[in-house]
Design a protein around this nucleic acid. Structure first.
Lengths: 135, 135
DNA sequence: GTGATTAGTTACTTTTAAGTACCTAGTTGC
DNA sequence: GCAACTAGGTACTTAAAAGTAACTAATCAC
């Protein structure tokens, strides 16, 4: 009955949802870069994140952080001082996700090594060059 | 020097490209579903794919197939008959990618089992319900 | 010779996402 | 008492993606 890897096509319409949801998490400009930055610093405040990504707008950065928080990837901790301090770090899900990103990265690297003629094109390259190159 | 998992943040701007490129492959409506269908059938023709996804437009299906082909995921084989017959199947990269999708899926399922209160929302649910629900 | 078939393409419209710029709160330093 | 600081929010504009509908080519069955 077309069972491969434990999944039945008849159940796919229900099952693709979590997978697609997870993929959607990573989608869009900056998302993987945000995760990468938080990973390398363990904890980062909003302003620190923004400094690392001069070309991102506060609006999009906020959107991404809210999305990752509501997905349970990031933990948002707010110090109710004036001015406020908000820190972002990984939840357990966040650490799971980073491990998965490592595998994605590893596969992408394997591909680019085994077939340098056919690299996966990064579609926000021009953007990044434009706006980050000068810094 | 913030080395985690073998990657240095200083190299990230160069390295994120393949990873982001891979993630981008999976992005957008229908992409993972297309991969799923081809996986379960091994080979599918354009029209067969379309029949399985009544709500997709030929334009978007073509775009996705072209993208996956140019990324080296899918093999496009055309019989120059009239009317033409075009079949899509996986390359080695495609099989690699499917294995990765299994891991993504497995993680998403682990999350939804371990924390049913915080499911990853699938943002083309409404769409799918709208157009596929009747089938 | 007309219609059905396959695998698309093209032009146009609509929807969605992203970018831009300006606004907020309450305290501190000057 | 005025500006600066932090972590955003809001309204408006622009760009990218997706949807829609009509069109193509060559052959076969009728």
């Amino acid at each position: 009955m077309q069972l491969m890897g434990g999944f039945d096509i008849r159940e796919y319409s229900a099952m693709r949802c979590p997978m697609h949801g997870l993929v959607s998490l990573l989608t869009g400009p900056w998302t993987t870069y945000i995760l990468w930055l938080i990973r390398t610093h363990s904890t980062l405040r909003f302003g620190q994140l923004k400094k690392q990504m001069p070309a991102i707008s506060a609006k999009v950065l906020t959107e991404r952080l809210r999305m990752l928080e509501s997905a349970g990837i990031l933990l948002r901790e707010q110090e109710a001082t004036i001015p406020p301090k908000v820190s972002y770090s990984f939840t357990q899900r966040g650490h799971d996700l980073v491990a998965l990103l490592d595998e994605i990265n590893a596969l992408a690297l394997r591909w680019s090594l085994s077939d340098p003629d056919n690299p996966l094109v990064c579609n926000d390259d021009a953007d990044a060059d434009d706006t980050e190159g000068g810094n």
